[in-house]
Amino acid sequence: MSSRPWALRMSWHDLCFMHWPVPPEVLAPTLPRGVELDTYDGQAWLGVVPFTMTGVAPRGVPDVPGVSTFPELNLRTYVTAGGTGGVWFYSLDAANPLAVRLARALFHLPYFDARMWTSREGGVTRYASLRTHAGAPAARFAGAYRPVGEPITAPAGSLEDWLTNRLYLYSASPAGRVYRGRIHHQPWPLRRAEAVIRENTLAQSLGMIFSGEPHLLHAESLDVRADWIEQVR
């Protein structure tokens, strides 16, 4: 934990890590100055992560009905800045207009308004998202997923550990300044997963189309604390 008080609390539920390998030379030009692409055995990865947030609130503020719970869907890759590895978000779609605007203003994260639907029955999660943010690139996602098998522990140095054990996020301001934020949580409660993806256009704004079967992992629930961001100098 950092010596500074954490800023936000939240819980993540029914999360599916969906990752596709991408040539590094394709992703590297999409990153801002000061942020470098991270690779695993020379391979870059692009991830789509659907989940549901609950208990989202600033430190010392109680949950707000209708505000503190909402689905979120992000498109991400993995980077380093100043020698520290973390997550770079290309987009974060959310069905919460207030959260979208606060995250954009306070954390410089590319959140977008979306209409989203999610349900879980018999262990299967059905998830759909349609971006509605004014002036933003169109993006749609529809699919279903479920965990399979027993819980797993991702060994240090494994691909599963590399994809999920990321305790920093990066963002950039409109002026091009790069920021880093720390998150805190226990190890991921991971299981393998199965998924059927009907539609996924999240990467079209990057000039990419997802193809092939993704690498899949599922996490049931995780409590998280997030620090305020700081500029990377």
Rank of each mutant, 00 (worst) to 15 (best):
E72D: 05
R180N: 08
V61M: 12
F107Y: 15
R146D: 12
N96Q: 15
Y179A: 06
Y90Q: 02
E213W: 07
P50R: 07
Y145V: 09
L222V: 08
A138R: 12
R140G: 00
R9K: 14
P187T: 12
W12C: 02
T84R: 13
F89Y: 12
V100F: 06
G135P: 13
E194W: 05
P24I: 06
A95L: 09
F17G: 06
G66V: 07
G42F: 09
E72L: 00
Y145P: 09
L159G: 09
E213N: 08
G212F: 03
M1D: 11
A134I: 11
P189R: 04
R76P: 12
V48G: 02
I197H: 04
H133L: 08
Y40D: 00
S205N: 01
E121S: 15
L8V: 10
T69D: 15
R146V: 00
R233Y: 06
P29C: 05
F51C: 01
E72P: 03
L222I: 12
A139N: 13
P155M: 14
H218M: 01
Q231K: 15
M10P: 00
V100K: 05
H184E: 15
T84M: 08
V87F: 02
A156G: 13
R131A: 00
R192P: 03
L222K: 01
S158R: 14
E72W: 04
T84G: 03
P71W: 04
L167Q: 09
G212L: 05
A103Q: 03
P62A: 12
G82V: 03
L222P: 01
S129A: 15
L190E: 06
A203I: 00
I152M: 09
V56R: 01
G157R: 13
V100P: 03
I229V: 10
A114R: 09
A114V: 11
W88V: 12
S129V: 14
E199T: 10
H215R: 14
F112V: 09
R166T: 04
R126S: 13
G176I: 11
T30S: 12
M208S: 04
R180H: 08
L37I: 02
E72S: 02
M116R: 06
G42M: 08
A203Q: 09
G34L: 07
G34W: 00
P29D: 07
R76A: 06
L37E: 03
A144K: 12
D161S: 15
E194Y: 07
F107S: 13
P5E: 03
A81D: 04
D38F: 04
I197G: 00
T39V: 14
N74P: 12
W188Q: 01
E150Q: 14
R126E: 14
Y127P: 07
V26K: 12
Y78E: 12
E121R: 15
L92C: 02
W117C: 01
R4E: 14
M53D: 10
R166G: 09
Y168W: 10
P137E: 08
D14I: 04
P5R: 07
P97A: 04
M1A: 12
W188G: 04
S158L: 10
D38N: 10
P50Q: 08
Y90A: 00
S3D: 15
T153H: 10
A139R: 06
R101S: 13
D63F: 02
G34A: 07
L217G: 00
S221D: 11
G82M: 00
A99Y: 13
V26H: 02
H13N: 05
